[in-house]
Every structure is written in structure tokens, then in C-alpha cells.
Design a protein around this nucleic acid. Structure first.
Lengths: 362, 362
DNA sequence: ATGGCTTACTGTATCGATCAAGACTTGATC
DNA sequence: GATCAAGTCTTGATCGATACAGTAAGCCAT
């Protein structure tokens, strides 16, 4: 990309106007940035001359350098930007950010992830921003390190808190517990769990207790712990519950995983899924096997993403406040943390009971 | 918002590292920006020292100033940013932009419109970007002038071309004409129109011919002209067609506007709406009044946005390639126009006939 | 007339890097 | 042994503005 300037025109700066009018650079600058500092008549004359010469106004980068602030916030998403502006959950989060940032006149810099997840950090390093919002980015993503290196105010959303950064998340453990308690109350005794990754090693398959204990994705660890809490509270053996891990959060992955779990003997009567997409996959697996939901099988999801209510049958799930996450995180960064310690907020979840769960079969 | 730096730490720049290691500023700079320009061993040493001291890496604004580019593109939307990340059409456009920009590692700066539409241009003036994409912003919006004043490469989408800016749009007039011709061919004679704003003044209500002529939103003017073309071509009096303007592109607005139009005597048999959302609102208004669509009333939308096909009944509409608009516009600005004249692209529209239109009632 | 206050403008230092050109080594080539 | 090229680092200029302190003039009150 090139400048649109005509080639014939000399570069025009504050100094150009100043020279032409026999004034100082500072006065021209004031005409733009501090109108109360000069005679209104002179100001008009300056602006008129500037327009005539074709001055573009104070250079944004120079201004930002000198002022030490830019009036914008960088946003880093898990996946590619294209995915982020497609995914309903990410968009709700983005909308929350916009609701908080717009009234303050702050712009949002959406950072690209050019080569899939392991994106080059260049764009993050070059981002002219006053802070970062980081949404569920893997710990070893190069962009993560780049963000931390910048030493700017940063808020992590749905990812492990860092001492130097703010944090906004949900109480995944409580959410998991709520889902499991609901199914227990319906009389279920034989559970199965479909998770997304516990450790970032692209493993796929049954999860041992050792692997559960070694989980590095905190969201996953918390949800599992929540399920376990509920079961143990009524004296059930969590260690007997089959857990199946899928590497991707896709309907197809959920279908495969749930299929394997449903083919076990004795068959589980309730499936706890880590997301609505995985849960919808489980519904498909059940349909394939001629199982009726919820008569033969209950399925509970997580997120209450837009597809949950319209699934067949509508999905019982744990709602998380996606919009609020963006809103709270953005406010947090706008307000800063003058007190010292970066703040940390856990937002509540809510169990939404729909038609995909019912009494355990006799 | 404040810097997250500990107060005790002195400001760290390239010079700090240079002094500590007895090297020159430039060498440290090269360690970051041109690794091939120095000994790899020295580079490692530099980076290690930088990390130890707590250097944040080259300052983005300073870098951008000196280099004369920022690696990001500013995006200005018609409405507020909050609206833009909510509206399906705007999002599709945004996705097109992302698809074009992401592979190049370019970031997107979404600019706010803080105080409603009459946004202060501050954010535009301070935007550290290499160019602007302007999506259907009113001619007299302060942000428009600000963008033009910046003299950066700019592409206008769905708004009047400017000699100095690129242009991407659709043939709104032809699209409007196609919708109206379709209804005429079905035998309709009594039309009504639901528009979104013609002039940026937050007016809501019936639209006079004078106001139509004074429309500053070119899209609106073109679509109205297209409807008028079709009607006049068969000898109909366009001036007798009631036109109702709503300030917001929302289902609820469409419902109100269509309700008022449907309560007229004689009742219109066909409603032409400026968007699918407004059209869906019209469907609701019809339902409320016990009117069957399409037997008693035909409704045609515009956009073919995601909800159109699943509306009840599925909506006849004018499809416009929203994603392509973003894609083409963004590519245009990334490639620039070295040849001189900024390019101009008109994308085609297509009438999609579904179940919301049918033969005029007898 | 003196001091104090306001208004209007100027001058210098500074924000933090990158660029272009130059200088000094070292090794290879004729 | 001189020349050249490549590799490595330095110097000085520059990107374009804003902050802060300072000066000069005008006005009012004492």
C-alpha cells in the first residue's frame, strides 16, 4: 500500500504552515489541539491556510508518540480473525467490548493471526495501542508472549490469570457442578463426559485419572472438578466415570466421542459435554443409535451458544455471559488499576434447563 | 487508563540497552528489526539483556512514525460500532475485510462513533492507520470529513465515489428496480415503502417528495430511484406511493413503520423494504393484523442477509454480495493504485424470489 | 507607578525509534 | 601485496508532533 499523496506535493507538516504564516510550530499545533490557547481569529486563519496548502492535520503516529497514548485497545482472539468475526460466541464477546469502549471514544484494533493459531507476533508488536484484551489464546502462542513483552495493561479473558494482567472469566467449576447436580437430581447414575483438550498435545481418546490431574488448560480442569464435586458430594465414584477427550470443539468431534462412550456396556444415561457443539454432536450420535433424547439419554452442554436453543431437542446447558465478559474486561482496561494489583472478576454461570435432559430411564 | 509499568522503573528504550552493553542504538534496533545485520551471538546477548532489564521492545508508535506505516487499516461504519458488530449484514462485510486483510498480517482498527451518529471525529484523526475503509457513512458526518482530511488511501463502500478515493458498491438503483418490477409483474398496484434514513437527522415518519429529493444517504436515494424507475416505466404515479422512514434498521422499526402503512386506506398490497430486517418487521405487522403473506400482502426485502431464508415465510429479497464488498474493498486498499486513478468496482445484485411475494389479491 | 493577573504566542527539549551512509575487520581473489 | 566484497557495528539526521517554561503586552487595582 502506498500513500495517496500526489508526488509533486512536498511533505506538509506543522512547520510548513508555521513558516508560511510567520508563526511558531506550537501555535499551529494549538490551533488543532488546544483551541483555547490562541485567538479564535488567528485559529481560523491557520485552519484556512492549512486547508489551502493541503495539510492533513497533525500526524497520528507522531501525536501518539509524543502524547504517550493512542486511544485504542488491541484485541487478540484465540483463532483467526476471520473465525472470530464468524463465530457467534466470539462476536458476542466483541460486542461487549464495543459497548464498553465506544462511549469513551476508544477504537478497537483487531489483530490478525495470519498463519493459523501459531501466528507471527509482528502485528502485536507493531500495534499502536494503550492496552490489550486477550481472549482465550493458548499459553504458548507467540502472540501471547508478544503481548506480555509489551508491558502494557492487559486483561486475560478465559485463560489463566497472570500476576501482571487483569482477569475476567467464569466460574467453570460451579458451572460444571450445576450441570452434574441437575442430572443427579433427575436420577442419573451412569455418566460420561466429553471434553476438549486438557493438555496441549493433540491427544484424542479416553482420559485417565492421571491425565485429568495433569490438565494444563484451566478451564477444562475446572469443569472436570465441578462434575467431580457434584458426584462425590452424593457419594459417587468419580473415578468410574468415563471421560473422552477431543482435540477440536466441533460437532463432528462430539459425535465421534459420544458414539464411543455410548457403545460402552453398560451404556451411560447422561452425557456431560464441555460445549454446546460437542453436545449437539452427542445428540447426533444418539440419533444414529436409535436412542431417544431425553427418554433414553440426557445430554447437557456448556456455553448456551446461539445454536443451543434451536437444537433438536433444545439443549440443557450452562449459560455463560459472553457479552458481559467483553463488557467487564473492556471496562477493566479502560479504568486501569491505579491501586496496584490488577483486578480479577469471576462472572456467574446459569444452568438453563431445556428438553435434552430428563429423568433417568428405569 | 495508565501504563502498567512499576513506578520505580525508569523508562527503558533502545538507548538503555545500548548503554548497558556499550553498543549503539542502531545495533539494538537491528537485533529486533533486521536480524541479518548483526552477529547472531551478539543478537542473543542483546535480547537476553533486554529481557533482563524489562525492555518492552521497540515502541510501536515511534516505529510507525519513523517507518511511515502502521500495518493497520481503519474501518468506519455507518452506525455505531455496537450496531456494526450486531448487524448480520455489517458483520458479513467485516468478515470480507478480515479475509482479505488477515493473510497480509494487517490489523483492523474499528473506529467508534461515540455520540450516536454525529460522532466526534477525534478517533479518526488519531487513528494510526495506513488507509481507511468507509462503509456507508453519511456525507455530512464529521467522520467523513476527517477521513478525507487525512489524505490517506481510502475506499468508499456504498457511498458516493470521490475522485481521490477508491469505490466499491452495488447498483442499488438496479436492485430497487428489480424488486419493484417483480411485484409489478405479479400484478401489484398499491405499493408502500419502508426506508431507513434518507438524511442524517433522526427523523422518523412519512417521507415527502421534497425529503426524498434531499436524501443525503446515497444508497437510500438510489433504491428509492430504482423503485420509482420501475413504477414510472409502466405509467404509475410514484408520488402517490407512501414512503415511511425509520431511524434504525431493526425488526421492531420495520414492524412499526409497516403497521402504520398497512393501516392506511386503501391498504397497500405490496411492501418494499430497504432491508431484510425491516421486511421481517413488516411480516410481523402483517401477522398482527391477520394478513396472510403472500396471499393478502407481498413483502420484498433487500440484502439477502442470513435471516432472510429462514424467515416465515422465506423472504423475497435483493441479494447483495456483502462479503465480497469487504473483500474487494480491502484488497483494493492493500494493493493501492500505483497507476494513479483510484479504481472503482460495481458488484452485481440478484433478485432472490422466495415465498413472501405472490400475485396481487384480486 | 508598581505589582499582579490574564491573554497570546514562542523556543527548546523530548517522545523512541529507523535510515542512510560511513568505518573498520576479516577473508578471499587476482 | 593491493583490491574487493561481505559482514558488522557506529554516527548523525530525521520522522512530526506536544509539553513545559518563558516572554511580552495589555489591563486593572492599589
Amino acid at each position: 500500500m502506498q500513500r495517496g499523496e500526489p508526488i509533486t506535493r512536498e511533505r506538509v507538516t506543522l512547520q510548513t504552515i508555521a513558516d508560511k504564516l510567520g508563526l511558531s510550530r506550537t501555535t499551529i499545533s494549538n490551533a488543532y489541539s488546544r483551541p483555547d490557547q490562541l485567538n479564535p481569529a488567528l485559529r481560523q486563519k491557520i485552519l484556512a491556510t492549512a486547508k489551502e496548502i493541503g495539510y492533513s492535520g497533525p500526524h497520528a503516529a507522531a501525536r501518539s508518540l509524543r502524547r504517550g497514548r493512542s486511544g485504542s485497545i488491541g484485541v487478540v482472539f484465540t483463532e483467526s480473525l476471520v473465525y472470530a468475526v464468524t463465530d457467534a460466541a466470539a462476536l458476542l464477546f466483541l460486542r461487549g467490548i464495543a459497548e464498553a469502549s465506544e462511549p469513551s471514544g476508544t477504537a478497537l484494533l483487531l489483530l490478525p493471526a495470519p498463519h493459523g493459531r501459531r501466528a507471527g507476533p509482528t502485528a502485536v508488536l507493531d500495534a499502536v495501542v494503550d492496552g490489550f484484551l486477550v481472549y482465550s489464546v493458548a499459553e504458548d502462542d507467540a502472540r501471547m508472549q508478544a503481548v506480555l513483552d509489551r508491558h502494557l495493561p492487559t486483561v486475560m479473558i478465559d485463560q489463566p490469570p497472570r500476576p501482571q494482567a487483569g482477569f475476567v472469566g467464569i466460574d467453570d467449576r460451579a458451572g460444571g457442578r450445576a450441570a452434574a447436580e441437575h442430572l443427579l437430581a433427575l436420577g442419573h447414575r451412569r455418566f460420561a463426559v466429553v471434553t476438549f483438550p486438557l493438555v496441549e498435545d493433540d491427544y484424542s481418546g479416553p482420559v485417565s485419572l492421571e491425565r485429568q490431574a495433569a490438565a494444563t488448560f484451566p478451564i477444562s480442569a475446572a469443569r472436570l472438578a465441578g462434575y467431580a464435586d457434584a458426584l462425590r458430594a452424593v457419594g459417587f465414584a468419580w473415578e468410574d466415570v468415563p471421560v473422552y477427550e477431543t482435540p477440536l470443539n466441533l460437532v463432528a468431534s462430539g459425535e465421534i466421542a459420544a458414539g464411543i462412550l455410548l457403545d460402552r456396556v453398560p451404556r451411560p444415561t447422561a452425557i456431560l459435554a464441555f460445549s454446546d457443539l460437542l453436545a449437539i454432536g452427542a445428540l447426533r450420535a444418539a440419533e444414529t443409535r436409535g436412542l431417544r433424547v431425553p427418554q433414553d439419554l440426557s445430554v447437557a452442554g456448556f456455553d448456551d451458544s446461539p445454536g443451543a436453543a434451536t437444537a433438536q431437542p433444545p439443549l440443557t446447558t450452562v449459560r455463560q455471559p459472553l457479552l458481559d465478559k467483553g463488557l467487564v474486561a473492556c471496562r477493566m482496561i479502560l479504568e486501569g488499576w491505579p491501586q496496584g494489583h490488577p483486578p480479577s472478576v469471576l462472572l456467574p454461570t446459569e444452568l438453563i434447563v431445556r428438553a435434552s435432559t430428563g429423568p433417568a430411564p428405569p
